[in-house]
Simulated assay, not measured.
Amino acid sequence: MAQTVLHTADTRGAADHGWLKSFHSFSFAGYYNPDRVHFGALRVLNDDFVTGGMGFGEHPHDNMEIISIPLEGELQHKDSLGNTATIKSGEIQVMSAGTGVYHSEYNPDAAHPAKFLQIWVFPNKRNVTPRYDQITIDATTRNEFVQVLSPNADDAGVWIYQVAWFNMARFDGNTTKTYQLHKEGNGVYIFVLKGSLKVDGKEVNTRDGFGIWDTDQFEVTAGTDAEFLLMEVPMKF
């Protein structure tokens, strides 16, 4: 029988730094919940709002797969690998921090906030050479799971050092689809960006997170028009 966990939006950790408002689905910085440290290899899921003209100064990471998905506005990225890029809604960015990388993320639009998801996944290989990539993702397909991340460099989306798959989905109300897990021992954490879903018969609403594991497939039904992210990761790693 499938195991599940529901993290409602109002139970997330929250931080307000003035220029940054952040909601943490898992323990992060000043928020610590021993029952919500990670979901399998998924370590961080932050829902961030960055004021116009502000951003994250240069800071280091190592041995972590870091994925950024802009939801509104744009961020200017710079890193110690020599990359300078702007990422915006409809794109996905990945960094394999490996042996170590410094980076900064800045909202260049003084008039509008940038909203994005910051996601960290534990890697299955340590001390790799750091790497950076970003791609445009399919924002038009409806009522399907659209793969945006995998373990394979030649597959759809970006790739990371972990047997993980991410899918974005935009469902019309009353749409039902079955998600088939790629690998035994994986689980899926679903984060609802807009609307409401039923997952394995349980209701999940805007900005809720829902984890499901010990199953090889499950049904997702949109109660309203809905947008959501599915993150399939190993539960043991």
Results as ranks from 00 to 15, higher is better:
71 L>Q: 10
44 V>C: 12
118 Q>F: 00
192 V>I: 01
234 P>M: 12
182 H>P: 03
8 T>Q: 10
155 D>Q: 05
120 W>M: 04
59 H>F: 14
223 G>M: 13
43 R>G: 03
103 H>P: 13
59 H>E: 09
126 R>V: 11
95 M>P: 08
105 E>F: 13
43 R>E: 09
118 Q>S: 07
203 E>H: 07
162 Q>C: 08
138 D>M: 10
49 F>T: 02
174 N>S: 07
180 Q>C: 12
121 V>E: 00
172 D>M: 09
206 T>P: 02
115 K>I: 05
16 D>C: 02
57 G>P: 13
181 L>N: 09
196 S>Q: 10
6 L>P: 04
168 M>V: 14
25 S>H: 07
26 F>Q: 04
30 G>Q: 03
165 W>I: 10
49 F>I: 02
59 H>C: 06
225 D>Q: 07
90 G>K: 00
129 T>Q: 06
96 S>Q: 15
63 N>S: 03
105 E>Q: 15
10 D>P: 02
237 F>S: 07
76 Q>Y: 11
128 V>Q: 13
159 W>S: 12
137 I>Q: 09
167 N>Y: 15
152 N>F: 05
66 I>V: 14
31 Y>Q: 01
195 G>I: 11
233 V>K: 02
173 G>Y: 00
213 W>G: 03
17 H>D: 02
194 K>L: 13
135 I>F: 02
221 T>D: 12
203 E>T: 15
89 S>K: 11
168 M>A: 06
125 K>A: 15
146 V>T: 13
86 T>N: 06
17 H>E: 13
216 D>Q: 09
121 V>I: 15
87 I>C: 13
176 T>D: 08
206 T>I: 12
235 M>P: 02
28 F>K: 08
96 S>G: 13
109 D>Q: 14
210 F>P: 07
23 F>R: 09
2 A>P: 15
169 A>S: 11
